[in-house]
């Protein structure tokens, strides 16, 4: 993710990160069997994460679109207007 220039690709990478975490959650809840059934608390959390990630990506895409409209590029390396 940190070597990508395109904001769009970075957003995709973030989704992959979240998916990885989701996978870990599902795995952990499968790992803890209670009476032969997985612990559903973890799996329920996964649904929340997926939903929230969708919302986040929607807002993210909107910002990327706004960025493209005003600058005709979504290359994040050009975002250096701030002083230090």
């Amino acid at each position: 993710m940190i070597i990508r220039r395109s904001a769009l690709v970075i957003l995709m990478c973030l989704e992959i990160m979240l998916s990885a975490a989701n996978l870990a959650l599902v795995a952990f809840s499968r790992f803890r069997l209670e009476a032969g059934l997985p612990d559903y608390d973890g799996q329920m959390l996964v649904f929340f994460v997926i939903t929230v990630a969708a919302a986040e990506v929607a807002v993210g895409l909107a910002i990327v679109v706004a960025l493209f409209r005003s600058r005709r590029t979504i290359d994040v390396t050009t975002l250096t207007s701030m002083s230090h």
Binding site: M1, I2, I3, R5, D75, T77, L79, T80, M82
Partner: peptide, 13 residues
């Protein structure tokens, strides 16, 4: 890596 944001994510990592 050229660019600020990437430097930030790098630092973050």
């Amino acid at each position: 890596i050229t660019g600020n944001l990437q430097a930030y994510s790098y630092l973050f990592g």
